[in-house]
Computed example of a mutant assay.
Amino acid sequence: MKRLLVIVTLGMLLSGNSFALPKCQGDNVFDWTDCIGAYIIVDGDYKAIEFNPGDKKKLLNPSFEEIQNFNFGTKYIGEMKNGYADGEGVMLLKTGSDKIFSYDIYSGYFKKDRFNFDKKGSRLRGKHTIEKY
């Protein structure tokens, strides 16, 4: 009985530890591999951005002000491999015009910058109208 208790306790302790990947280093997104990074795509150009672990949750539920000021097309925070979004992450895609635009938020697993619908994940859609004077 004591042996079972020791095994269960060790299992619980080990399962609670997070074996997180390190933050990606450098400004060249395409050099990133086996790390956690964040980038935006502006006019087809990938730019590395600073992020905090809490930013991933904020990206899932952006405020109206954040969406209104989101003037680029794609933002990603998550695991990277060989310069691609690869592994667990969150991606925000903006479409439409300056006055009316829609966005999709993908949360889950990516493989070579593409969302993997086969694995557990979600896709949220939103639409906002912004009056510009």
Rank of each mutant, 00 (worst) to 15 (best):
K56W: 05
N82G: 09
G73P: 03
G78S: 09
Y133T: 14
T95E: 12
I49F: 01
G83C: 04
A48S: 15
Y46Q: 03
K94P: 00
S107H: 00
G37T: 07
E131L: 14
Y84A: 04
E65P: 08
F70N: 02
F101D: 03
I41D: 01
D118W: 03
I67D: 03
G78I: 03
S15Q: 10
I100A: 08
I130C: 08
V42T: 06
Y103D: 01
Y39L: 02
R125M: 11
D34G: 01
M91Y: 00
S15M: 11
I7Q: 00
G16K: 09
V29D: 03
R3T: 10
L14N: 13
D43R: 10
C35E: 02
G26M: 13
Y84D: 10
F117L: 11
I41C: 05
E50Q: 14
K99Y: 12
D113P: 04
V90S: 01
M1A: 10
I100T: 09
K99R: 14
F64M: 14
Q68L: 15
L59D: 02
D104A: 08
G11M: 08
I67F: 01
M1Q: 14
R125L: 02
C35T: 05
L4F: 12
G44H: 11
Y133G: 13
L10T: 07
I41A: 02
G78L: 03
D98K: 13
P62A: 05
W32E: 00
T33L: 04
G121L: 03
A20Y: 05
K94L: 09
Y133M: 13
G121Q: 01
Y133Q: 15
R3K: 13
E79S: 07
I100G: 07
D27I: 12
A38S: 15
N69V: 06
G44A: 06
I130P: 04
